[in-house]
Amino acid sequence: MNTFFIYALTGGLLSSLGLLGFILHRHLLRRLMAFNLMGSGCFLILTGLSQSHQGVDAVPQALVLTGIVVAVSATALALVLIRRWYHLTGQTSLPEDVQSLEKTSSKEAQG
């Protein structure tokens, strides 16, 4: 048990929390935040776990840096989409299933 391993454990905890949030919440923003939490957890695991085995290592840090960039852009895209979705439908969550999505859209088309 070293510091790195504690990082990894924390990462695991955060990921699980994030996953739980992702499953339980329907609000799009909450889900997005849950996803970000999961992402951060993953990054902690990636750096922590490997360095706890092999000591300080530049590769996982480089990887995580890339990962963070990707996660930020994904978050940005999601925010844009959520905002537009809210403007169009006034809703903060997606319909429960695909069929009801079709129904809402057909109602809109009629109205």
């Binding site: 999601a78 169009l88 999505l101």
Partner: peptide, 16 residues
Amino acid sequence: TEALGAALRYLYAALL
């Protein structure tokens, strides 16, 4: 609307 809903659903699946 339809495309946007589908895109969001897709995005979340992809991210997960």
